[in-house]
Design a protein around this nucleic acid. Structure first.
Lengths: 246, 246
DNA sequence: CGTATAGTTGATTTGGCTCAACATCGGTGG
DNA sequence: CCACCGATGTTGAGCCAAATCAACTATACG
């Protein structure tokens, strides 16, 4: 039952170069919604973005603040959190390089509905909501791509509602770990490693339970050999059996 | 405690004329995403839509079927349902005239992720996903409007996740009734009537609980004079006090 | 009117929360 | 380099909100 082992996570610090104009160029070019644009167009778009580096745990914006910008992750990863009145944290999403978050409503009268926190040291590219909007107006293909991404997120969100409404905590934790594996998994010598620091609080916040209950269920999964975990890291060792727990 | 009273719901049957080409024209013109289009453009768009009448309880499409069309409610209202493995029903959304649902991914390789059911007799306008897509490509303003609506739905969906994760059933039922009041409420002699037939099963499906628990909590709300209800109908009689229950 | 559907209410059970004590990891500074 | 300590994770005991199971009543529709 002992899984004593140093963290297998590779938390390479955001390299300075991930925030340079040229590397941003590459990242922007890889975004689904800016593909097919000419180099010159991309260059002009890139000029409109600014960037900021954040260390692990830094707040990018806070729920309730006036929302004025759209953010794109140039490197690193970001978690989106909603707070309940009694302080309970709901983890809405975990985003990785190339994904966007923040505001794209140009009205100027909106407020962030969640708090964004750097989950590892990250470089975040930012653009004014109105400017982003005018890019979308200029490139209809881009806005359809954004629309597709939003559709997908809505579907995922509704799947989660279904789970919270009808499934047990065990189901939800199995599902969440598998989804994280799909999205952030990296094969290593142990199995499929989830390449972000993930605490019991995070898992509890994603599944609508408490850290204690999350810990208990994770211990059960460990006992039957579905996963291996340690402080802030998780490895899936038996995907097919874990899928049966959903 | 007795609220013996005939249903105050006005379930006017979908008038035949709500499905005529001309009345569809009006409805399309009122859609947020087609506003600002010329009469001629609208006329061309209208020609691409077909329509179908559904009676209360009719299935418009079923979860898992190949998704090929986008639907717009010309008249009536529609509920979107997801089923759990053990048969439990999750009510994802209730939509009214002018709202859209279904599929807008043109890839042709997608499946409906929920079942759509007419909640009253309804006229549904339908368009092929690819055709809708090409309209969006042609009118960038329209696709941005659609994007805005999707953003709003995503926010609502995440709010619901938060509630399911952190709030009591009482909180959630109060919230849900208030939201339904905002969206579908009509002032009558009793108070703010929710103008759709709404069962305890529906409310349970929207709040992630059981009909029995929903009934108990609704009885409590009735006792303290926050709402009045009968078979399939709900009237909010004290909004401000009901808000305190969230 | 009679019947199927919808709603209510009670008794019992239980999954998961709360509170609490303890174990362990890993970064920091002496 | 190692000891320390705060952050993280584990585990136990008791409790409670809500699910389940069940019997019943009320409503609307044909």
């Amino acid at each position: 039952m002992k899984t004593l082992r140093k963290t297998p996570l590779k938390l390479t610090d955001t390299k300075a170069e991930s925030c340079t104009f040229d590397s941003r160029m590459e990242i922007l070019h890889d975004l689904p919604f800016f593909r097919n644009l000419s180099h010159e167009e991309m260059h002009n778009i890139n000029k409109v973005f600014s960037d900021t580096k954040y260390d692990l745990g830094d707040v990018i914006y806070r729920e309730g603040e006036k929302s004025t910008r759209l953010c794109v992750i140039a490197s690193g990863s970001v978690k989106l959190i909603k707070q309940n009145l009694d302080g309970k944290e709901i983890l809405t999403d975990i985003l990785k390089q190339g994904e966007f978050f923040g505001n794209m409503d140009p009205s100027g009268e909106t407020f962030y509905v969640e708090t964004a926190i750097a989950q590892v040291s990250s470089c975040i590219m930012k653009i004014n909501s109105e400017q982003f909007r005018s890019i979308l107006e200029k490139y209809p293909t881009a806005s359809l791509k954004v629309l597709d991404i939003m559709s997908k997120r809505l579907k995922e969100s509704q799947e989660r509602i279904k789970q919270l409404s009808a499934n047990s905590v065990e189901n939800r934790i199995a599902y969440t770990i598998l989804k994280l594996g799909e999205k952030l998994g990296v094969e290593n010598d142990l199995g499929l490693l989830i390449q972000i620091p993930l605490t019991r609080y995070d898992i509890a916040g994603m599944t609508g339970t408490t850290p204690e209950t999350a810990s208990r269920i994770i211990s059960k999964f460990k006992e039957v050999g579905l996963i291996k975990t340690g402080r802030k890291w998780t490895v899936i060792t038996n995907i097919s059996e874990l899928e049966k727990k959903i």
